[in-house]
Structures are given as structure tokens and as C-alpha cells.
Nucleic acid binder design. Structure first.
Length: 304
DNA sequence: CGGTTTTGACCCGCGC
DNA sequence: GCGCGGGTCAAAACCG
């Protein structure tokens, strides 16, 4: 909670691979901002590239491409600033205007994998010979590589590991993380038709930072909030259900394509409407809620 | 009693 | 081929 734990109080975290969140070969971009005041956040937006970032130019104020995993950072003061926009299969994050060029090789192109498919079989793999992880058995034939959903990771300063985000999650695993004293927890959305998963782990560099990684997108609405629609938590969640525009809400953070924004506790802040063309919103109408990831991941990069 | 968490075992991909 | 580490399963324990 104090800056003493911040690896880089000056505004950026280290750019090495200490923040590796994935075990696979996904390209990972790490986005960090200082946990200082929002002025820094507003100016920096997104700060750095992973060493594995593509060679594309940094058109968006620091980060140019997201292949499959984005990492943002929410400050302790429950503020987040920056933007997320997506185009095609790739997602860009930046403080400026965006709209990815669809670059990248996100492994979500398999049309048979759809997190919102209503015909998803029970996720429990039933293939003969053992358990098949990560994707439904229907979409996974023998010899097929694992196919990952796009992933988005956020870093939040919080004493609580599992941040409320409006969805109900069931923990299905926990693993020790190499080179980290903190375990990684695996959660699955309790909705049987929803394939969204998330990982929660605490940074070994800064134990005050919780790294939450979402994979997939919800195909259902959030559950209600018990207290006036807002989770009373240090990292405030802003219920995105009421949002008429394509803002990106997150526990304690607000993602918007437009300029810097602040979220205060238990307060929903109106923001400018997102241009539908950029985010490929089919209509300017109130979007059907597709859950947290549905907000974070614009339609352009969804499989459907 | 139903839903969730815990936890050891197992599977898979990758690097060597 | 083997070992390692990440990810998942599933039975048992736990909890409201």
C-alpha cells in the first residue's frame, strides 16, 4: 500500500519478464502505471512494452499491440486511466486513439471455440484417455493444440486477492508459482454455460499487487450486487451494467477510449461515448450486457 | 443439502 | 525422451 513496495516509484515498473503471467507462448504485453496519483496515470496511460511485444511501432503512447494478454494496473486509489480498444483479433491499449490493425496471431481464430456458444458441452472434458484442459472437448480433437481465449490481465493494489467484479466464480485449482511465495488461484465462472476463467495471483515483486487475468468472455449478465449495486471494497467496482456506452469498467478501474477519467468510491462517472466505428459496435444503442469481458473485449475481437 | 473450497493427482506443452 | 511447470480434474472437506 505504500510506495516503498513499488518496484518503480517513478512511474514505470521494470520491463523485464518478472511479470510473466502465462506459461504458454502467448505474446504478453505488460501495462503498468504508477500507483501514484492519477495525474501520472493520465499522462502515462500505458507505459511499456514487454520484451516480447511485436515489432510494430508504438502508436498508442507506449503499447502497440496486444496479442492475447493485456495487463493493466489499477492503483490503490481505485483509479485507472488509459484505454483499451480492439480491432480484429488483436487488442490495443493506449492513452490515445486506437483501433488495432488486426495484427497478431491470437489463437482464438478457431471458429469452433466460442465462449458464448449456447451449445457448449459440459466443460468437463470427457475425451477418452484422460482430462483435456482449457477448451471444451467438442472443440478439441485429438492432436489439436490448445486454443486459448484472449486474456486480459490487470494489476490491482489490494489486500484482497479475489476482487469482486460482479460475477460469481468458483475456485477450481491452486498452484504454487515458481519464484513466488504466493500461490496462483484458478477460478471459473459459476455459470455453466460460461467458459470464462480467471487467474489470481499476487505479485512476488510487490505483494500488495494482485494480478488478475481473465480469459474468455462472459455470455451472461452479472449477478446483482448486494449493496446498492456496488461492491463495498477497497478496490471499488463500478457496475458496468448501467453503462450506456462502451466503457470498460473493472473492479476499481474504468477503462475508456477517451481521456483520463477518475472513478471515486461508489460513484459512476459518465464518460464520453465511444465511437462505434472504432470499436465496431454494430449500433449506438445500449449494448446488451455481455459481462465484464464483454465490455473489455469489444466485438471486433470476439469470436462471436 | 447444495454450493464452494481444498488439494493431490493427472495431463499437456515446451525446452533441453 | 525426459523433466519441469502450468493448468485442470475431481473427490473430499468445508460452509452457510
Amino acid at each position: 500500500m505504500d510506495d516503498a513496495h513499488n518496484p518503480d516509484p517513478g512511474g514505470n515498473f521494470a520491463t523485464d519478464s518478472n511479470w510473466n503471467l502465462g506459461s504458454d507462448s502467448d505474446t504478453v504485453n505488460y501495462l503498468f502505471t504508477s500507483d501514484r496519483e492519477s495525474s501520472i496515470l493520465g499522462e502515462f496511460g500505458w507505459n511499456l512494452h514487454s520484451a516480447r511485444t511485436s515489432s510494430e511501432s508504438d502508436r498508442f503512447g507506449g503499447l502497440d499491440r496486444i496479442d492475447s494478454e493485456n495487463v493493466g494496473f489499477a492503483s490503490e486509489s481505485s483509479r485507472f486511466q488509459g484505454s483499451v480498444s480492439c480491432g480484429g483479433e488483436a487488442c490495443t491499449v493506449g492513452s490515445g486513439s486506437g483501433g488495432g490493425a488486426g495484427v497478431g496471431d491470437v489463437s482464438t481464430s478457431n471458429p469452433s471455440v466460442s465462449s458464448s456458444s449456447s451449445e457448449d458441452p459440459p466443460e468437463k472434458a470427457t475425451s477418452s484417455g484422460g482430462k483435456l484442459a482449457e477448451i471444451p472437448s467438442k472443440a478439441r480433437k485429438k492432436g489439436q493444440k490448445r486454443i486459448r481465449q484472449p486474456r486480459f490481465a490487470f494489476m490491482t493494489k489490494s489486500e484482497v486477492d479475489h476482487l469482486e467484479d460482479g460475477y460469481r466464480w468458483r475456485k477450481y485449482g491452486q498452484k504454487a508459482v515458481k519464484n513466488s511465495p504466493f500461490p496462483r488461484s484458478y477460478y471459473r465462472c459459476t455459470n455453466s454455460k460460461c467458459t470464462v476463467k480467471k487467474r489470481v495471483e499476487r505479485s512476488s515483486e510487490d505483494p500488495t499487487i494482485v494480478i488478475t487475468t481473465y480469459e474468455g468472455q462472459h455470455c451472461h449478465h452479472t449477478v446483482g450486487f448486494p449493496r446498492g449495486g456496488i461492491i463495498g471494497h477497497e478496490s471499488t467496482f463500478v457496475n458496468h451494467l448501467t453503462s450506456p456506452v462502451s466503457q470498460f469498467y473493472y473492479p476499481g478501474i474504468l477503462l475508456s477510449r477517451e481521456g483520463p477519467l477518475n472513478i471515486t468510491q461508489s460513484q459512476q462517472v459518465p464518460v464520453q461515448t465511444v465511437e462505434s466505428s472504432t470499436l465496431r459496435e454494430p449500433t449506438p444503442q445500449i449494448p446488451v450486457d455481455e459481462g465484464l469481458l464483454g465490455d473489455i473485449v469489444p466485438p471486433g475481437m470476439r469470436n462471436r
